[in-house]
Nucleic acid binder design. Structure first.
Lengths: 143, 143
DNA sequence: TTTAGTGCAAAGGCTTTGCAGATGT
DNA sequence: ACATCTGCAAAGCCTTTGCACTAAA
């Protein structure tokens, strides 16, 4: 499991950057790692409150931002929806199939698409850094 | 040119739906069609004000929404940026190369990628409706 | 005439920030 | 001790909405 790896990364980063190791940070990281793949700050906040009701949403936001900087989380902004946060430790890049009916997120990956994307960028003299592919439609259950 | 086509579509839609043909709507459509490809509501608003300073941003939003419903415009939401609006009349689907330095949007298209996306969706029992592919990186000038 | 459209300002929805007090180091 | 972190509330930012007035049809 990559929970341990993430915690190590987090701890190391805090030390290296002279940041403080607080109870809130621990709680937020734990809840984030225990949560589903594409959680919103609000849902995470609600999970966190079950454990530590005094933690504020501002702290959750501040630390989600920190997790993104460290590379433990990644923002996923889809249309009008609230920002979602993905766990990235020990995970490789993937794209998303998003069901417009039930909201289900399915992670998919295709090496050939990745390769063609790289070629497409190169053909335009473009140096790709990251990319996002989202396919909207109806999932197996909803179609 | 597809300006005429868009105006026709707009006019027809207004009549068909019993909506009113107003000076503001004309102005907004004209400015939208005259504007660049990936304009924000704010930039469009500023263009519009040069012609009709009394038009409000609310009206611009209301009518951009209408243009989207008609199929003349399409929302493009990218990361933390403001919503951008693309012209869609007479244009086919395309993806975007987005320069993280200068903000340039380049439109690209690759039939093979489209095909693989369709296959990928099908392999997951998913019925694709639309999709968006954005590749972030450095453009020719900025790299 | 009558009903949708407009402009304004206020409200919403989510995220960020300022600040005083709490807490790691 | 002292600088960061936190919680709260306020502010920001963009978009939407309520309302009285204007203007299409």
């Amino acid at each position: 499991m990559n929970t341990r790896q993430a915690k190590q990364l987090f701890s190391d980063h805090l030390s290296r950057m002279g940041l403080r190791h607080t109870v809130q940070r621990d709680t937020i990281l734990n809840c984030f790692l225990a949560a589903g793949r594409h959680i919103t700050s609000e849902d995470l906040y609600n999970e966190i409150r079950k454990i530590s009701p005094e933690i504020g949403i501002a702290t959750v936001h501040r630390n989600l931002k920190l997790l993104c900087e460290i590379g433990i989380a990644e923002e996923l902004k889809i249309g009008n929806e609230k920002t979602r946060y993905e766990q990235t430790v020990g995970r490789t890049h993937h794209d998303h199939l998003i069901c417009t009916k039930c909201g289900e997120f399915t992670e998919v990956h295709d090496k050939r698409i990745e390769m063609l994307q790289a070629k497409l960028a190169a053909a335009n003299g473009f140096v790709p850094v990251r990319h996002g592919l989202e396919i909207y439609g109806l999932c197996k259950k909803c179609k």
